[in-house]
């Protein structure tokens, strides 16, 4: 599928940064508000799929290779397991929350009951949200991109 008309491209140019900002907000505030790594990653991947619809998968394939996206997904997965293994090192439990209540990065313990949104809480959960967000963005975008490209190619080398 090649690109669509100029109206669609202009609308996507306006909407794409807003979608990215909203998705990254949902990822970053996953430990305070509804949302998290999966949902924010799905939002950002939808924005990237909008780019694929408007500009055509051949144009997107020229900008970014799917091997790079695949390595981004691997980076996200490795980061997730690394944080889990750090829990094994520092608190002797796999997936242990070693940063909670330690007054280091993200280490503040909130008061019990209804509180305001303090960004500096949560222990390892914001780090895991970020890793899973990167993983979901790259994974869903590479699925959409490869399927769109394969359905636009006339002849397959089967």
């Amino acid at each position: 599928m090649s690109g669509m008309s100029k109206i669609v491209k202009t609308s996507v140019n306006i909407l794409f940064p807003l979608t990215m900002i909203f998705g990254l907000y949902v990822i970053a505030h996953g430990h305070l508000t509804p949302g998290g790594g999966f949902q924010g990653g799905a939002i950002v991947a939808s924005g990237c799929a909008m780019i694929v619809v408007a500009y055509g998968s051949k144009w997107v394939f020229k900008q970014i290779k799917e091997k790079r996206l695949s390595s981004f997904e691997s980076i996200g997965g490795v980061g997730f397991i690394t944080v889990a293994l750090l829990g094994l090192v520092f608190s002797s439990v796999f997936f242990g929350n070693f940063l909670a209540g330690s007054n280091l990065l993200f280490g503040t313990t909130p008061a019990t009951g209804s509180t305001g949104a303090d960004f500096n809480t949560g222990g390892v959960l914001p780090l895991m949200n970020f890793a899973v967000g990167v993983k979901v963005i790259a994974g869903l975008f590479v699925i959409v991109l490869v399927m769109a490209y394969a359905s636009s190619v006339k002849e397959w080398d089967t």
Binding site: L32, P110, G123, L125
Partner: peptide
């Protein structure tokens, strides 16, 4: 809020109490 330091109960279940599922 005491054990994981998080306001969001669902995120604490996903990433801390049931991390193996994730």
């Amino acid at each position: 809020q005491n054990e994981t330091g998080t306001n969001n109960g669902v995120t604490s279940v996903v990433f801390d109490y049931r991390g193996f599922d994730t």
